[in-house]
Design a protein around this nucleic acid. Structure first.
Length: 225
DNA sequence: GCGACAG
DNA sequence: ATCTTGTCGC
C-alpha cells in the first residue's frame, strides 16, 4: 500500500535516447518577439481512452475569436506518460490532427509547458520545432521553477524562475482564481505569450483556444467510443 | 539520499 | 490524463 504499482518503470536506455533527442531539438528553438501578422490561432489538446489517444485542434480567427475549424485524430498511443517526456507521448497524434486543418494557424496554444521544462523543451516547444510554427504553452500546474503567488486579479503575473532564468509567468487569468503558467514555445517570446494568454482568457481560467480544445477532446471522445 | 514530477 | 461526490459561488 506504499508502492505505486501503476507507475511505469522507466527504461534507462529509453530515457537516455529521449533526453538526447530533446537536447537536439532544444537547440532549434528560437525565442523572439513575433513580427508576423496573426490572423488565426489554434488551441490543441489530447484525451485518452485506455491505450488510445484522441487529439484535437480548434482553429480561431483573430482577433474576433470565431471558431473556424475543429479537427481530430484517434489512434493507439505508443508510450506511457513520463514526466518531462510528455511530448513523445502526445505530439505524434497531435501532428496527425494538425495535418487535417484546411488553414494552418499563425500561432498554436498548447495545453502544457513551452521552455519551462527541465531541458527547456516542453511539449509546446517540441511541437513548435516539429511543425516549424509559433507556439506557446499554457499549463495548469508548474513543472519546474519557483514563483510567488501573484495578486489574484486578472492580468497580474509573477515570474517563474529556474536556474536563474525567467522561464514562465504565473498568470492570473481570472479574478480570485489561481494562476496558470504561461511560457514561450517556439518563435515567440514570453512577453508576447503572456499578452496573448491575457487577451484570449475571455471569461474562464483557461484561454479560449486551450479551453475549447480541452472541451472538444471530451466531446469527440464520446463520439468514438 | 529524498522528494517532486506538465498531461 | 483518468477515476470520482458533494459543494460553493457567479
Amino acid at each position: 500500500m506504499f508502492l505505486r504499482y501503476n507507475a511505469p518503470v522507466p527504461d534507462p536506455e529509453l530515457i537516455k535516447q529521449l533526453t538526447q533527442q530533446q537536447q537536439e531539438m532544444s537547440r532549434q528553438v528560437r525565442l523572439e518577439k513575433p513580427t508576423f501578422e496573426i490572423k488565426t490561432i489554434a488551441g490543441c489538446d489530447s484525451s485518452f481512452i485506455g491505450e488510445n489517444i484522441l487529439s484535437v485542434f480548434i482553429l480561431f480567427s483573430w482577433p474576433d475569436m470565431q471558431v473556424l475549424e475543429k479537427v481530430w485524430n484517434y489512434e493507439p498511443v505508443e508510450l506511457p506518460y513520463l514526466p518531462g517526456f510528455l511530448a513523445f507521448r502526445e505530439s505524434p497524434n497531435l501532428i496527425k490532427a494538425y495535418d487535417k486543418l484546411q488553414t494552418k494557424p499563425d500561432l498554436i496554444m498548447v495545453d502544457g509547458h513551452g521552455i519551462s521544462h527541465p531541458r527547456r523543451l516542453g511539449i509546446a516547444s517540441q511541437l513548435g520545432v516539429l511543425l516549424n510554427k509559433p507556439t506557446m504553452g499554457v499549463a495548469k500546474k508548474i513543472l519546474v521553477g519557483k514563483y510567488e503567488q501573484p495578486e489574484l486579479t486578472k492580468g497580474t503575473f509573477t515570474p517563474v524562475m529556474h536556474r536563474n532564468e525567467h522561464i514562465a509567468n504565473a498568470l492570473c487569468t481570472k479574478d480570485n482564481v489561481k494562476p496558470v503558467f504561461v511560457s514561450a514555445g517556439h518563435l515567440v517570446d514570453l512577453e508576447f505569450a503572456t499578452e496573448m494568454a491575457i487577451k484570449t482568457a475571455i471569461k474562464h481560467k483557461l484561454p479560449e483556444p486551450t479551453r475549447l480544445a480541452d472541451h472538444y477532446a471530451e466531446v469527440f471522445k464520446s463520439e468514438v467510443q
